Computed example of a mutant assay.
Amino acid sequence: MSQLNIFTAVVGLALLAVFFEMLRRRQLREKYAVLWIIVGIGVVVPLSIFPGALNSVAEAFGVKSGASLVLFLGIVLLLLICTHLSWEVSQLEEETRTLAEEVALIRTQLEERSVLPERDTPATEIGPKAAADDH
């Protein structure tokens, strides 16, 4: 086993350990952790255990080097992940806008019923400083 194979295996195992630790600490959601763990296992195991197989697969696809195939597939994977995350951000922005509109309508209804005092500051200025000014 060459030094590159050992290095690949060690780096792959370290990355898997980081993913599991982030999952344990709830810093990474389960669906993303599963994705990264599958990618980590799918890349590290074949590269570290069967390094010659990569060149065979590359040749089958008409690529001259296994490294070029891995680089290309990595770029495609990253583009897919960026596209998915952009879609999720768009969904969250829409949800945030809808919730902000609903809160504004509820606040207006409560102020009309005199349940809440009228406010001098717009909703965007609420924060620690604005809250301290109210007292």
Rank of each mutant, 00 (worst) to 15 (best):
P51D: 04
P51E: 00
P51R: 05
G52W: 08
A53K: 05
A53S: 04
A53Q: 05
A53N: 00
L54S: 06
L54I: 09
L54P: 01
N55T: 08
N55S: 09
S56H: 07
S56W: 04
S56V: 05
S56P: 00
S56E: 06
V57E: 00
V57K: 02
V57F: 02
A58D: 03
E59P: 03
E59G: 14
E59L: 15
E59V: 10
A60M: 15
A60T: 15
F61W: 06
G62M: 00
G62R: 00
V63R: 01
V63G: 03
K64W: 08
K64E: 14
K64Q: 14
S65I: 04
S65W: 09
S65F: 08
S65N: 13
G66C: 00
G66K: 01
G66A: 01
G66W: 02
G66D: 00
A67Y: 03
A67D: 09
A67H: 01
S68H: 09
S68P: 02
S68G: 10
L69C: 01
L69N: 02
V70P: 01
V70C: 01
V70N: 02
V70I: 07
L71F: 06
L71N: 10
L71Q: 11
L71E: 15
L71T: 13
L71V: 09
L71Y: 07
F72E: 10
F72V: 13
F72S: 14
F72T: 11
L73G: 04
L73T: 09
L73V: 05
L73N: 04
L73S: 10
G74W: 02
I75P: 06
I75V: 15
V76A: 11
L77N: 04
L77G: 03
L78Y: 10
L79Q: 08
L79A: 14
L79F: 14
L79I: 12
L80G: 12
L80D: 07
L80S: 06
L80Q: 10
L80F: 07
C82F: 07
C82P: 00
T83D: 13
T83N: 13
T83C: 12
T83H: 10
T83R: 14
H84P: 01
L85P: 06
L85D: 14
L85M: 15
S86D: 03
S86K: 08
S86R: 05
W87L: 07
E88Q: 12
E88K: 08
E88F: 02
V89G: 05
V89L: 12
V89T: 08
V89N: 12
V89R: 14
S90N: 08
S90D: 05
S90Q: 08
L92C: 04
L92T: 06
L92G: 03
E93H: 11
E93Y: 07
E93K: 14
E93L: 12
E93D: 13
E94I: 11
E94S: 15
E95V: 07
T96L: 13
T96P: 02
T96G: 06
R97N: 13
R97K: 13
R97F: 10
T98A: 15
T98H: 12
L99G: 02
A100M: 10
A100V: 10
E101P: 02
E101T: 11
E101K: 10
E101I: 07
